[in-house]
Protein backbone atom coordinates (compact mmCIF):
# COMPACT_ATOMS: atom_id res chain seq x y z
CA UNK A 1 0.00 0.00 0.00
CA UNK A 2 1.27 3.45 -0.96
CA UNK A 3 -0.12 6.58 0.69
CA UNK A 4 0.67 10.14 -0.38
CA UNK A 5 -0.37 13.09 1.69
CA UNK A 6 -0.15 16.72 0.52
CA UNK A 7 2.88 16.16 -1.69
CA UNK A 8 4.41 19.28 -3.23
CA UNK A 9 7.56 19.65 -5.22
CA UNK A 10 9.11 23.00 -6.11
CA UNK A 11 12.17 23.79 -8.14
CA UNK A 12 14.34 26.89 -7.94
CA UNK A 13 12.73 27.93 -4.67
CA UNK A 14 13.04 31.63 -3.95
CA UNK A 15 14.25 32.49 -7.40
CA UNK A 16 12.35 34.26 -10.16
CA UNK A 17 11.96 31.04 -12.08
CA UNK A 18 10.38 29.28 -9.11
CA UNK A 19 8.23 26.46 -10.36
CA UNK A 20 5.78 24.19 -8.56
CA UNK A 21 5.73 20.82 -10.28
CA UNK A 22 3.35 19.25 -7.80
CA UNK A 23 0.76 21.04 -5.73
CA UNK A 24 -0.60 19.03 -2.84
CA UNK A 25 -1.17 15.54 -4.17
CA UNK A 26 -3.14 13.09 -2.03
CA UNK A 27 -3.32 9.54 -3.23
CA UNK A 28 -3.72 5.97 -2.10
CA UNK A 29 -2.61 2.97 -4.10
CA UNK A 30 -3.45 -0.54 -2.99
CA UNK A 31 -1.22 -3.52 -3.52
CA UNK A 32 -1.54 -5.18 -6.91
CA UNK A 33 -3.24 -2.19 -8.48
CA UNK A 34 -2.37 -1.05 -12.01
CA UNK A 35 -2.65 2.71 -12.33
CA UNK A 36 -2.05 4.95 -15.32
CA UNK A 37 -1.34 8.65 -14.86
CA UNK A 38 -2.42 10.64 -17.87
CA UNK A 39 -1.96 14.27 -18.70
CA UNK A 40 0.00 16.55 -21.00
CA UNK A 41 3.73 16.88 -20.62
CA UNK A 42 4.53 19.20 -17.75
CA UNK A 43 1.47 18.06 -15.83
CA UNK A 44 3.70 16.56 -13.13
CA UNK A 45 3.10 12.86 -13.72
CA UNK A 46 6.78 12.03 -14.17
CA UNK A 47 7.73 14.09 -11.12
CA UNK A 48 5.09 12.26 -9.12
CA UNK A 49 6.39 8.87 -10.23
CA UNK A 50 9.96 9.84 -9.37
CA UNK A 51 8.85 10.92 -5.91
CA UNK A 52 6.90 7.70 -5.30
CA UNK A 53 9.90 5.75 -6.58
CA UNK A 54 12.19 7.37 -3.96
CA UNK A 55 14.21 9.01 -6.70
CA UNK A 56 13.65 12.47 -5.35
CA UNK A 57 12.26 13.90 -2.19
CA UNK A 58 9.13 16.05 -2.09
CA UNK A 59 9.52 19.63 -0.92
CA UNK A 60 6.75 18.97 1.57
CA UNK A 61 4.22 16.28 2.33
CA UNK A 62 4.60 12.67 3.37
CA UNK A 63 4.68 9.28 1.72
CA UNK A 64 4.27 5.89 3.32
CA UNK A 65 5.16 2.68 1.57
CA UNK A 66 3.84 -0.43 3.34
CA UNK A 67 3.54 1.66 6.47
CA UNK A 68 7.08 3.03 6.37
CA UNK A 69 7.48 6.77 6.09
CA UNK A 70 10.02 7.43 3.35
CA UNK A 71 9.83 11.19 2.89
CA UNK A 72 12.70 12.25 5.10
CA UNK A 73 14.95 9.31 4.40
CA UNK A 74 18.50 10.24 3.45
CA UNK A 75 19.56 9.14 0.03
CA UNK A 76 21.37 5.98 1.05
CA UNK A 77 18.20 4.56 2.60
CA UNK A 78 15.99 5.84 -0.17
CA UNK A 79 18.29 4.13 -2.66
CA UNK A 80 18.06 0.90 -0.69
CA UNK A 81 14.25 1.01 -0.76
CA UNK A 82 14.32 2.04 -4.40
CA UNK A 83 16.34 -0.92 -5.56
CA UNK A 84 14.57 -3.46 -3.38
CA UNK A 85 10.98 -2.29 -3.87
CA UNK A 86 10.87 -0.66 -7.30
CA UNK A 87 11.65 -1.63 -10.82
CA UNK A 88 11.93 1.20 -13.33
CA UNK A 89 11.18 1.19 -17.03
CA UNK A 90 12.13 4.44 -18.69
CA UNK A 91 10.85 6.08 -21.82
CA UNK A 92 14.22 5.98 -23.59
CA UNK A 93 15.05 2.56 -22.13
CA UNK A 94 18.20 4.17 -20.65
CA UNK A 95 20.40 1.19 -21.27
CA UNK A 96 24.16 1.59 -21.01
CA UNK A 97 25.78 1.36 -24.39
CA UNK A 98 28.91 -0.67 -24.92
CA UNK A 99 28.15 -3.38 -22.43
CA UNK A 100 26.24 -6.59 -22.98
CA UNK A 101 22.56 -7.29 -22.50
CA UNK A 102 23.45 -9.49 -19.55
CA UNK A 103 25.53 -6.82 -17.80
CA UNK A 104 22.83 -4.21 -18.35
CA UNK A 105 20.29 -6.51 -16.79
CA UNK A 106 22.48 -7.20 -13.77
CA UNK A 107 23.37 -3.56 -13.01
CA UNK A 108 20.71 -2.86 -10.34
CA UNK A 109 21.89 -5.93 -8.43
CA UNK A 110 25.50 -4.75 -8.15
CA UNK A 111 25.06 -2.65 -5.01
CA UNK A 112 23.30 -5.55 -3.30
CA UNK A 113 26.38 -7.71 -3.58
CA UNK A 114 24.70 -11.07 -3.91
CA UNK A 115 26.59 -14.02 -5.30
CA UNK A 116 27.73 -13.25 -8.83
CA UNK A 117 26.73 -16.66 -10.12
CA UNK A 118 23.20 -16.46 -8.68
CA UNK A 119 22.67 -12.93 -9.97
CA UNK A 120 23.77 -14.04 -13.40
CA UNK A 121 21.44 -17.06 -13.35
CA UNK A 122 18.54 -14.82 -12.34
CA UNK A 123 19.28 -12.44 -15.19
CA UNK A 124 19.47 -15.25 -17.72
CA UNK A 125 16.15 -16.70 -16.53
CA UNK A 126 14.49 -13.30 -16.89
CA UNK A 127 15.94 -12.68 -20.33
CA UNK A 128 14.85 -16.15 -21.45
CA UNK A 129 11.35 -15.51 -20.18
CA UNK A 130 11.23 -12.26 -22.15
CA UNK A 131 12.36 -14.06 -25.27
CA UNK A 132 15.82 -12.51 -25.72
CA UNK A 133 17.80 -15.30 -24.09
CA UNK A 134 19.75 -15.80 -27.29
CA UNK A 135 21.20 -12.29 -27.28
CA UNK A 136 22.61 -12.03 -23.78
CA UNK A 137 26.19 -11.42 -24.90
CA UNK A 138 25.30 -8.79 -27.50
CA UNK A 139 25.89 -5.12 -26.91
CA UNK A 140 22.59 -3.31 -26.38
CA UNK A 141 23.14 -0.73 -29.11
CA UNK A 142 22.80 -3.49 -31.75
CA UNK A 143 19.33 -4.50 -30.59
CA UNK A 144 16.02 -3.39 -32.09
CA UNK A 145 13.78 -1.01 -30.14
CA UNK A 146 11.51 -3.81 -28.97
CA UNK A 147 14.47 -5.88 -27.81
CA UNK A 148 15.94 -2.93 -25.93
CA UNK A 149 12.60 -2.43 -24.22
CA UNK A 150 12.71 -6.04 -23.03
CA UNK A 151 16.23 -5.67 -21.70
CA UNK A 152 14.98 -2.62 -19.80
CA UNK A 153 12.11 -4.72 -18.41
CA UNK A 154 14.46 -7.53 -17.41
CA UNK A 155 16.65 -4.96 -15.69
CA UNK A 156 13.64 -3.59 -13.83
CA UNK A 157 12.84 -7.08 -12.58
CA UNK A 158 16.30 -8.26 -11.53
CA UNK A 159 15.85 -7.40 -7.85
CA UNK A 160 12.32 -8.89 -7.79
CA UNK A 161 10.53 -5.62 -7.00
CA UNK A 162 6.94 -5.49 -5.82
CA UNK A 163 6.19 -2.20 -7.60
CA UNK A 164 6.94 -1.44 -11.25
CA UNK A 165 7.18 2.16 -12.37
CA UNK A 166 7.01 2.79 -16.10
CA UNK A 167 7.41 6.23 -17.67
CA UNK A 168 5.89 6.44 -21.17
CA UNK A 169 6.80 2.81 -21.87
CA UNK A 170 5.17 2.72 -25.31
CA UNK A 171 6.59 6.02 -26.59
CA UNK A 172 8.95 4.33 -29.03
CA UNK A 173 6.97 1.18 -29.79
CA UNK A 174 4.66 0.39 -32.66
CA UNK A 175 1.19 -1.01 -31.97
CA UNK A 176 2.27 -4.62 -32.13
CA UNK A 177 5.16 -4.13 -29.71
CA UNK A 178 3.02 -1.99 -27.44
CA UNK A 179 0.50 -4.84 -27.34
CA UNK A 180 3.23 -7.27 -26.37
CA UNK A 181 4.35 -4.92 -23.61
CA UNK A 182 0.84 -4.73 -22.21
CA UNK A 183 0.74 -8.52 -22.22
CA UNK A 184 3.91 -8.58 -20.18
CA UNK A 185 2.29 -6.09 -17.80
CA UNK A 186 -0.77 -8.24 -17.42
CA UNK A 187 1.59 -11.06 -16.50
CA UNK A 188 3.04 -8.87 -13.73
CA UNK A 189 -0.44 -8.07 -12.56
CA UNK A 190 -1.21 -11.77 -12.20
CA UNK A 191 1.95 -12.10 -10.08
CA UNK A 192 0.48 -9.45 -7.79
CA UNK A 193 2.87 -6.64 -8.67
CA UNK A 194 1.72 -3.06 -8.36
CA UNK A 195 2.24 -1.12 -11.59
CA UNK A 196 2.35 2.65 -11.93
CA UNK A 197 2.48 3.98 -15.47
CA UNK A 198 2.75 7.50 -16.82
CA UNK A 199 1.42 7.58 -20.34
CA UNK A 200 -0.71 9.58 -22.73
CA UNK A 201 -1.02 6.66 -25.13
CA UNK A 202 -4.65 5.58 -25.45
CA UNK A 203 -3.46 2.05 -26.13
CA UNK A 204 -2.19 1.99 -22.59
CA UNK A 205 -4.85 3.79 -20.55
CA UNK A 206 -7.69 2.10 -22.40
CA UNK A 207 -6.16 -1.33 -21.92
CA UNK A 208 -8.00 -3.94 -19.89
CA UNK A 209 -4.95 -4.38 -17.67
CA UNK A 210 -5.46 -0.98 -16.11
CA UNK A 211 -7.44 -0.71 -12.88
CA UNK A 212 -7.50 3.03 -12.53
CA UNK A 213 -6.69 6.09 -14.62
CA UNK A 214 -5.65 9.28 -12.86
CA UNK A 215 -5.66 12.48 -14.86
CA UNK A 216 -3.24 15.23 -13.96
CA UNK A 217 -2.83 18.83 -15.01
CA UNK A 218 -0.53 21.60 -13.74
CA UNK A 219 0.70 19.58 -10.82
CA UNK A 220 -2.68 18.56 -9.49
CA UNK A 221 -4.93 15.54 -9.84
CA UNK A 222 -7.99 16.56 -11.82
CA UNK A 223 -9.87 13.28 -11.85
Amino acid sequence: MIQLSAITKSFHTGKTNEFHALKGINLEVSLGEVIVFVGPSGSGKTTLLSIIGCMSRPTSGRIWISGQEITSLPERFAARIRRETFGFIFQNYNLIKGISVLENTMLPAYPLGGKYRLTKERAITLLDKLGIGSKIQEHVEYLSGGEQQRVAIARALINAPSIIIADEPTAHLDTRLAGQLLEIFSGFRKEGKTILIASHDALVFESAVVDRVIAMRDGSVVK
Binding site: A79, F86, N94, I96, L107, P108
Partner: peptide, 19 residues
Amino acid sequence: AEEKKEIGILKGIGWDTSD
Protein backbone atom coordinates in the same frame (compact mmCIF):
# COMPACT_ATOMS: atom_id res chain seq x y z
CA ALA B 1 27.79 13.83 -21.62
CA GLU B 2 27.74 10.10 -22.27
CA GLU B 3 29.46 9.36 -18.98
CA LYS B 4 27.21 11.73 -17.04
CA LYS B 5 24.19 10.06 -18.56
CA GLU B 6 25.50 6.67 -17.53
CA ILE B 7 25.94 7.74 -13.95
CA GLY B 8 22.44 9.17 -14.09
CA ILE B 9 21.11 5.81 -15.26
CA LEU B 10 22.97 3.96 -12.53
CA LYS B 11 21.51 6.26 -9.92
CA GLY B 12 18.09 5.92 -11.48
CA ILE B 13 18.09 2.15 -11.29
CA GLY B 14 18.98 2.12 -7.62
CA TRP B 15 22.64 2.95 -7.20
CA ASP B 16 23.41 5.20 -4.29
CA THR B 17 25.92 8.06 -4.19
CA SER B 18 28.31 5.91 -2.20
CA ASP B 19 28.03 3.15 -4.80
